[in-house]
Design a protein around this nucleic acid. Structure first.
Lengths: 193, 193
DNA sequence: AACAAAGTAGACCGACTTGTCTACATGCGT
DNA sequence: ACGCATGTAGACAAGTCGGTCTACTTTGTT
C-alpha cells in the first residue's frame, strides 16, 4: 500500500481516539511501522499530517453521510435518515467512521483555539460542507424546490440537532431516542412553515 | 485574596481560552504572579488543578443559567430564556462566563478521551447537573406538573439544541437566530405532546 | 548489473513538560 | 521578639516533544 495513505490512516485513527496533543509522532510511527524519515519525507510537520487527516476524515464522513440521506423524498425523510445515521454511528454500527469518539472536527477545533489557525479553518470548512450537503439534499425534495431560504433554515436546525447529539453522546454517553420518533420529526419539520 | 482561589481563577481563564494541554504550569504561574511551590502546596498535580477549575466553572455556569431561566412560567418561556441566554453568552454579553470559547466541559472532555478518567467524569457530571436544572425548572411550570417523563424529554431536547448551538458557534462562529423565534419555539414545545 | 529513489532504525538536538527541592523573604499570632 | 506557616524565585531532575541527520537496506527501472 502507498506509504503516505497508510500513515494518514494510522494517524487519523489514533488522533481520533486519543486527541492530537496527546499523541506523539513516535507513537504513530510505531503503530504504522514506519521510519521517522519516511513520515517527514511526506509531511513537513505534524500540523500538515493533521491537516491530511482532517481532509481524509472530511471525505469519508461526507461520503458516508450523503449515502445515508440519498433518495430521501421529503424533509422529514431527510431528518429521519440523518438522525438514525448519527445514532447508528454513536452505537458503533458505522464501521466506515471507526469507533465513535465524537466529532473529530469539534474535538480537534477544541485543541486549536486560535480561529485563524489552518487546522481550525479546516474544521470550520468541514462543517460548512456538511451544511451544504444538507441544504442541497433538502432543496431537491418536492416540498422545498425553489425555496432555498426555507431549506437553509431547516438544514441549520438539523445541523444544530446533529452536533448536539454527537457532543452529548461524546461526553455523557447518552442518546436522544425521541429524535427518531416519526411523529415528532413531522411536527419538527413543519414548525418552520 | 486567597491564593488558592486566585490560582484557580487564573488557571480557569487560561485553560478555557487555550485548552488544557496547550497551557503549561509555568504559564499559569506567571499570569497569576505566584511561585511554583505555592501552586504545588495547594494542588498535588496539574490534574487536580484542572478538577478545581471544572468545579468552579460548574458552579458559575449553573448559577448563571439558573438565574437566566428562573421565573419562567411555561415551557416555551424556558426555551426562550435558555436560547437567548446562550446567544448572549456567544455574543460575549455574559461577563460572568468570560470570553466565549465554546463549552469548557466539552472542550476539556475532548482532551481526556478515556471515559473513566476523573476529569472526563467531572465533565459528564456537569452535563447531568445542567440537565437536572432544566428538568426541575420545567417540572415547576403549570403545564408540566406531575409529568416528569414529559419534562425530562423536553429537557433533553433543549439540552441537545443548546449543545449544538454552542459547538456550532465554537467551530463555525455562526448563530441560529431562528431558535429565538417565538412561533417556532411554541411549535417546538408542543411537538412533544 | 547498476544506479537512483525511497525505505529502515535510531541517535541526537533543543525546547518544553510536570514536579521537586533549596534558599531566602514576609507576615502573623502569641 | 520569637517562631512558624506561607510565600517567592528559580535551579534542577527526568522525561517527552517535534524535527534533523547519519548510515544502511530495499526496491524498481533502465
Amino acid at each position: 500500500m502507498d506509504k503516505r495513505t497508510h500513515i494518514i490512516n494510522t494517524a487519523l485513527n489514533t488522533f481520533y481516539q486519543k486527541g492530537i496533543h496527546s499523541v506523539g509522532i513516535n507513537e504513530i510511527l510505531k503503530l504504522a511501522n514506519v521510519a521517522k524519515k519516511t513520515l517527514y519525507n511526506h509531511f513537513v510537520s505534524k500540523d500538515e499530517l493533521v491537516c491530511a487527516c482532517l481532509e481524509l476524515r472530511d471525505q469519508r464522513f461526507n461520503q458516508w453521510l450523503s449515502k445515508q440521506i440519498a433518495d430521501c423524498k421529503t424533509p422529514q425523510q431527510v431528518a429521519s435518515a440523518l438522525f438514525s445515521a448519527i445514532t447508528s454511528w454513536i452505537d458503533n454500527k458505522a464501521p466506515e467512521l471507526g469507533d465513535f469518539n465524537g466529532c473529530f472536527f469539534i474535538n480537534t477545533a477544541a485543541e486549536y483555539p486560535q480561529p485563524d489557525h489552518p487546522i481550525a479553518l479546516q474544521c470550520k470548512a468541514h462543517k460548512q460542507a456538511v451544511l451544504d450537503l444538507l441544504i442541497t439534499t433538502l432543496s431537491q425534495t418536492a416540498q422545498l424546490q425553489n425555496q432555498t431560504a426555507k431549506a437553509t433554515q431547516l438544514a441549520q436546525l438539523l445541523m444544530t440537532l446533529k452536533e448536539g447529539m454527537i457532543c452529548q453522546a461524546r461526553v455523557t454517553h447518552t442518546t436522544n431516542h425521541f429524535l427518531q420518533n416519526p411523529k415528532f420529526l413531522a411536527q419538527l419539520m413543519d414548525a418552520q412553515a
